[in-house]
Design a protein around this nucleic acid. Sequence first.
DNA 1: TACCAGGAGAAAA
DNA 2: TTTTCTCATGGT
Length: 213
Amino acid sequence: MCSAFQNVFDTMLVAYGSQHWWPADTPFEVMVGAILTQNTAWSNVERAIANLKASDWLTAENIIHADLSQLAEAIRPSGYFNQKAARLQGFCTWYLQQGGYDALTQINTHDLRKALLSVKGIGPETADDILLYAFGRPVFVVDAYTKRIFSRLGLLKGDEGYEVVRAIFERELPADVGMFNEYHALIVQHAKQHCKKKPLCGACCLQQGCKVV
DNA sequence: TACCAGGAGAAAA
DNA sequence: TTTTCTCATGGT
């Protein structure tokens, strides 16, 4: 099988190379980063994570015991800091109640996704970031870039909901963790390079080289 | 100055 | 059920 979605992946991989995601040292750091990056540029999240590391607050135990206002101050650069501080503590409370990382790895993907979505502040994209990049589950992460780029390519209508888009990608592609990891990272890289505002800029590899366009 | 960034939840219609 | 509003910093 060689779908249009496979062709887009091949084209971007040739253009940008392997992205080596997620940019984090531990699975727990992936989870924290996934919450902090909601509607926020990653460069701002990096500052917030550096502050957490400097305060030794990059563990679930230390986050829930941190003073909420001090925690908010540490993550201020990532924006929405009051909201995200409360959500980080809420997530970490749930995380420890579940028994931590090793206990969560025992749960099947469907149930783990459902459990993550039950946590306040964890929506579908954040849940899928965590499933794919922290737990290595074959889940396709959909973001605003995904909808924008694939709508312009004519592969999506553009008004589909999150779960519909996710189902399309997971139907069109093999359930391969390595590929899903790379695919989402390449979409982000592509969006940063090109096509932020224009309908498909001249330098866009998907316009010049992709067979589906 | 205005817009956008690796969203989510609550309130309003 | 669908749309709108709120949360907020930092770069362009």
